[in-house]
Write a protein that binds this DNA or RNA. Structure first.
Lengths: 341, 341
DNA sequence: AATAGTATTGCAAACGTTTTCATTGTCGCA
DNA sequence: TGCGACAATGAAAACGTTTGCAATACTATT
C-alpha cells in the first residue's frame, strides 16, 4: 500500500545507488565477466534496493531480440491444441522466450490482423497451426523475414518450416485396420471437409485404402457430422439404422465418442455389433468406455519439435526449409474387433 | 524469396518516401485529424510501398503502454483452463491487447520468475489463476504497481481484484443435492488438498453441508484420488466394495468420470445402485454416459469478467479492490437419483 | 624504471519513436 | 493592406538501453 510515487527505477537509478556509471550497470547484466566482482556485488545490491527491472523495450530498440514469439491457434477449446501449446511453450520457456498467444477462430482475415499486431511487437518468430494462411499473411511473413513454422500437419511443399503428421496417412492407417479385421461395410463419419484440409486429407487417405481393398460407393457411405460429441451422436444414429455397416470410421476422436454413444444407445454392443475406429488419440480417449481404437498423433512431440525448429531458424535464417513428417501409429483398443468376431 | 537486404522500413523511410518529416508520419498514425487528408493519403501510400510496421518497443520507451497483458495458468491440459483462457483473451483482443501466456505447472517459484519476465516486457497488467502466489510475487506486483487480477476462485480478502466461484459453495451445493435425494452414506472422492486450496474449499463446503444434515465420520468416508480419469477409476473401485456407499461426491468432473467408470465396471447401474455427483460442468460432462450431475462453474463468464476488471484497473489504478463472487448452479442430470429410488 | 599489455570503467552516440515548441502559410475580417 | 487566428508542418529533445571508443589504473616483462 505504500504508494511509491517516484517512477519505477531505471538503469540510472541503479547506477547512482551503486556509485558507478550506467555503462557498468548495463555490462553487469550483459557481460558480467567484464566487471569486477566487487563492483558487480555493489550493483546487485543496488538492484535489489531499487527494485529495478530491465526494460526489454529499450533493449529491443538497440537491435536486441524481443525474446518473444507469436503463436496463433484456431482455438484452445479442443484439448488437442492445448497439448500442442503446452509442449511448444514449455520448450520455448527453457530458452527464456515468452509466448504471445492468440486464437484466430478459424478466421484467416483475423489471423492476418493478429500476425500484424505480433510484428508490431517485433516477435522473433511465429508459429501457426496448419497451412491455410491467407496470401496477405504469407507476404507479410516473407517481406519482414520473420522466422515461421507451421505445426500440426505435414505438407510436402509448405512455404516455410513445418512439422506434423500426414493426415492422409492417419486416414489410411485407420482404414487399413478395419480392412484387416475383415470389415466390408464401413461408414465414414467425417466433419465438413470444405474449410478443413485436415479432415479432407484424412478422408482421402481412408478412401484410398478402402478403394485399394476394392471398397467404394455404397460399401463406404459418407456420414457428415461435426466436431462435437452430441452432434456426432445425433448424426450417426440414423445411419446406424439405415445402412447396415459393421464398422464406423470416424474422422476424429470426438466424433468417435459420439458415434460410440449412438451405437450404445441403440442397444448395440461395441465391438460385437459395431466396431468404432477414431483418429487422434487425445487425452481421455483411452479412458472412454469402451476404450476407443484410434490412430495416435503425437501432439506433444510436434509442439516440442516445432519450438526446436523455430529456434534453429531464428539462429540461422538462411537454413533450407525443414519439413518434418511425424509418424502416426495405430492404437488398437477395445472398440474394434474382427468382423463376425 | 526476394531477399531485401535493406533493413526493414522505419518511420524515416516512410517520411522520405512520402516527402514529409517524421513528425508528420507519427501524427498521421496517432492523431490523424491533425494532418491534412492529402498528406495523409501520401503517407498511407508510402506505408504500403515500404511495408512499414510500427515498432511498439520504440513507442513504449516514450511512455506508451505496451499493449500486452500477462496471463499465468497452472496448466492448459485441463479443458477448464482452456475455456477460461479463451474467454479472457477474446475479451482483451477486442481492446487490441495481446496476451503473453505462460504456465507455471503449479510451481510458485516458477510463477515468480515468469512474472518477472513479464514485467521486463512491461505488461500493462497480469492475470493469475487462484490465490496461491508466493510472497515474492505479491511484493513484486505491489512495488511495480502492476494491475493484477486473480481468477477462478473468489476470495473475500484477496490482495487484489478477483473474480470466481466460491469453491466452498460449490462443495456445499453438491452435497445438498445428495442429501435432498435422501442419501445417508456418501463417499467423498477428492484430490489431495494440501497444495490445492480449490479442492480444500470444496471439501470443506461439502463437509459443512453434510454435518448440518447430521452426517459425519464413517457415513462420509474420504477417498483420496487425483486429477485423472484413470487414477480416479482405480482409486474409487476398492472403496465401492468396502464402504457401502449409495452415492459418491466427487471433487471435480474428471474424478466424477473415473468414479462412474469404476462403478459401471463393477456391474453397478448408475444411478440405481450408486449416484455420482461431480463439480465443474466442463465440456463433455453432459455428453458422458450417463450424463453426470454436477455443479456448474461458468468459466467463460469468469474469464470475460476478469478481462473487464483488468481493463478497468488499467484505466484507473486507484479503484478500490473489486471482488466478484459468481454463482454456482446445480445441474442435476442422469447420474443421481433418490435413495432407493 | 620504463614499457607494453590488459582489466576496468566512463563518455557519448545510437536505436525508433512521440511530443513540445516554433515556424510557416492561409484565411477572414476590419 | 494589415492583423490576428488557426491549421499544417518541421526541428529537436526525450525515453532507457547497449556498445564502440577513449581513458585510466594496474600487472608483468625487460
Amino acid at each position: 500500500m505504500t504508494r511509491t510515487d517516484k517512477k519505477n527505477a531505471d538503469i540510472h537509478t541503479v547506477a547512482r545507488a551503486a556509485g558507478v556509471s550506467i555503462s557498468t550497470v548495463s555490462r553487469a547484466f550483459n557481460h558480467p565477466d567484464q566487471v569486477q566482482p566487487q563492483t558487480r556485488r555493489r550493483i546487485e545490491r543496488a538492484v535489489l534496493e531499487t527494485g529495478y527491472i530491465r526494460n526489454r523495450a529499450a533493449q529491443m530498440i538497440k537491435g536486441r531480440r524481443s525474446g518473444t514469439v507469436g503463436l496463433i491457434v484456431p482455438t484452445l477449446e479442443h484439448t488437442i491444441f492445448a497439448e500442442l501449446v503446452t509442449a511448444f511453450s514449455d520448450a520455448l520457456e527453457q530458452a527464456e522466450i515468452s509466448i504471445i498467444l492468440s486464437s484466430s477462430n478459424y478466421d484467416l482475415e483475423r489471423e492476418f490482423r493478429l500476425l500484424r499486431k505480433m510484428m508490431e511487437h517485433r516477435v522473433d518468430g511465429v508459429a501457426l497451426i496448419g497451412h491455410q494462411q491467407s496470401a496477405a499473411s504469407r507476404r507479410l511473413l516473407s517481406v519482414q523475414q520473420t522466422p515461421a513454422v507451421s505445426l500440426w500437419n505435414y505438407h510436402p511443399d509448405s512455404a516455410f518450416d513445418c512439422v506434423g503428421a500426414s493426415n492422409f496417412d492417419a486416414g489410411r492407417t485407420a482404414a487399413q485396420h478395419l480392412i484387416e479385421l475383415g470389415h466390408r461395410k464401413i461408414g465414414l463419419v467425417f466433419p465438413e471437409t470444405d474449410a478443413n484440409d485436415r479432415a479432407a486429407d484424412r478422408l482421402a487417405g481412408a478412401r484410398a485404402a478402402l478403394a485399394e481393398a476394392g471398397l467404394s460407393g455404397d460399401d463406404v457411405p459418407l456420414i457428415t457430422s461435426s466436431y462435437s460429441v452430441a452432434r456426432a451422436k445425433a448424426d450417426s444414429a440414423p445411419a446406424l439404422v439405415t445402412r447396415n455397416t459393421t464398422a464406423l470410421l470416424c474422422g476424429n476422436d470426438v466424433i468417435g465418442r459420439g458415434a460410440a454413444l449412438a451405437a450404445i444407445n441403440m442397444g448395440m454392443l461395441i465391438p460385437r455389433d459395431q466396431s468404432i475406429m477414431a483418429i487422434g488419440d487425445f487425452k481421455g480417449t483411452a479412458e472412454f468406455e469402451p476404450s476407443l481404437s484410434t490412430v495416435h498423433i503425437p501432439a506433444p512431440f510436434i509442439g516440442n519439435r516445432a519450438a526446436q525448429m523455430l529456434l534453429d531458424r531464428m539462429a540461422d535464417p538462411d537454413l533450407p526449409v525443414q519439413r518434418h513428417r511425424v509418424n502416426v501409429e495405430l492404437v488398437p483398443r477395445a472398440s474394434t474387433a474382427p468382423y463376425g468376431h
